[in-house]
């Protein structure tokens, strides 16, 4: 199993009586592509933060790629996230004043840097080329590139450390239909090619046909129902 949640409870330390997330049992097999949808405020980002190790569950077992995240220290979870999880947001995926290459290198640096710099640069260039980013744009600050280009560079950045799990949090919301379809095909083929487990969160149901499984958040999280 890529993801295995058991009796997970989460409440923010500021509001210890308000359970934001309550998951009895939920799992995602390896290499499955899951589409999660739900209204905002239903605990979506909390779930993603738990899975990426940004947050620690108040109770229960959170196991990602066979690793019990709830048993790791803060520093270990940061390291685990850098090495095994790719993350794409709706926007602000890149440091605006760095160029694409530096943005991707930076992500690689936090993985522990066991790879040789020239190897990484080769991989970055190959990836950028696959995503139709012309070499003329590689040295420009990403803020000067188009949103479509930025989102494709964001996938490259998420892929650089060869993650086994990719979390995409409404990555297409800021894209126009053309760019969106382009983005989705690229993302799906890449996930298939690298045998990546994909967790895709969106409220755009028209994208659901790309996925193996569609999971409404209300089915996963029982805390929303009781509220």
């Amino acid at each position: 199993m890529a993801i295995q949640l058991k009796d997970v409870h989460f409440c923010y330390p500021e509001a210890p009586n308000k359970t934001v997330l309550c998951i009895k049992n939920w799992s995602v097999p390896e290499q499955e592509h899951v589409f999660i949808h739900g209204p905002s405020g239903s605990g979506k980002s909390t779930l993603l933060n738990l899975l990426s190790g940004m947050l620690r569950a108040t109770q229960g077992e959170v196991s990602v790629l066979g690793q019990r995240l709830d048993q790791l220290s803060n520093r270990q979870r940061d390291k685990f996230r850098a090495n095994h999880i790719g993350y794409i947001f709706q926007q602000f995926n890149l440091i605006p004043y760095l160029n694409p290459i530096d943005n991707i290198r930076l992500a690689n640096r936090f993985s522990g840097g066991k790879t040789i710099a020239s190897d990484v640069d080769n991989r970055i260039e190959t990836l950028l080329a696959t995503f139709n980013i012309p070499p003329s744009e590689w040295q420009k600050p990403v803020a000067r590139l188009s949103i479509g280009q930025q989102q494709r560079i964001a996938i490259t950045r998420a892929m650089i450390n060869k993650p086994e799990l990719l979390i995409a949090d409404e990555p297409t919301s800021s894209l126009d239909p053309d760019n969106r379809d382009n983005f989705m095909t690229k993302l799906m083929s890449l996930a298939k090619e690298h045998r990546i487990t994909l967790l895709f969160v969106s409220h755009d149901m028209s994208l659901s046909h790309y996925f193996d499984r569609i999971a409404p958040l209300s089915e996963i999280n029982s805390a929303g129902a009781s509220r």
């Binding site: 940061d78 850098a82 947001f89």
Partner: peptide
């Protein structure tokens, strides 16, 4: 920017 750095693994 800070959030992004955190997500890509910066302590």
């Amino acid at each position: 920017e800070i959030h992004l750095l955190r997500v890509i693994g910066a302590p």
